[in-house]
Simulated assay, not measured.
Amino acid sequence: MRTPAQMSELAFFVGTWHAEGRQRSAYWDGDWLVFLGTVTMGGHTVPLRETVTRVGRR
């Protein structure tokens, strides 16, 4: 059996202006996959939340 950490979705990104971030989502909540993490830009780190919505048939 897999643990929640093994079942999670992990997203990394690197953007312009030296932005970088890391997000993790544990599971789908209905039609939503909510990623929580941080983004760092210009030496400042702030919380980040991104929601992916499933549309259409499953």
Rank of each mutant, 00 (worst) to 15 (best):
M41S: 14
R49V: 10
T51Q: 10
A5I: 11
D31G: 04
E20P: 00
T16C: 03
A19L: 05
T53W: 02
Y27C: 11
M1G: 12
T45M: 08
G56M: 05
F35T: 01
L48W: 02
M41W: 04
L10S: 09
H18A: 14
L36I: 01
R57K: 06
V46P: 01
S8D: 08
T3D: 11
R24N: 01
M7V: 06
A11C: 02
W17E: 14
R22N: 06
W28V: 02
A5E: 15
H44D: 09
S25W: 01
A26D: 14
G56F: 06
W17N: 14
S8H: 00
F12L: 14
A26I: 07
D31E: 15
G43H: 13
W17T: 12
W28H: 05
Q23A: 12
T53S: 07
F35G: 02
G56S: 07
L33H: 03
G43N: 12
H44C: 00
T53E: 14
P4W: 06
A11K: 02
T53G: 02
A11F: 01
Q23V: 07
E50A: 11
R54N: 01
V52D: 00
F12N: 14
M41T: 10
T45Y: 11
R58M: 06
R2T: 12
T3A: 14
S25I: 02
G37M: 02
A19G: 14
V39Y: 06
E50Q: 15
S8C: 05
V55F: 04
V52H: 02
Q23T: 05
E20F: 09
R54P: 01
L33N: 11
M7K: 15
A5V: 13
Q6M: 12
L48E: 09
Y27H: 15
F35D: 01
G37E: 04
G56P: 08
T40L: 02
R57Q: 08
G37V: 05
D31N: 15
V52I: 06
E20C: 03
S8W: 01
V52Y: 05
H44Y: 05
T45N: 10
T45K: 08
E50M: 10
W28M: 13
E9A: 15
V39L: 14
T3M: 08
V34P: 01
R58D: 09
V39H: 04
V34I: 15
W28R: 13
T3Y: 10
G21I: 03
G30D: 05
R54D: 01
M1F: 07
L10P: 00
L48N: 12
L36A: 04
P47G: 09
T40S: 15
V55E: 06
V14M: 08
P47L: 03
F13I: 03
W32F: 10
F12C: 07
A26L: 12
H44Q: 11
Q6S: 11
H18P: 00
L48I: 00
T51G: 02
G30F: 04
A26N: 05
A19M: 09
E20I: 11
H18Q: 13
A5Q: 15
F12S: 13
R58P: 03
H44E: 13
Y27L: 10
A11Q: 04
V55Y: 03
D31C: 03
T16H: 09
M7G: 13
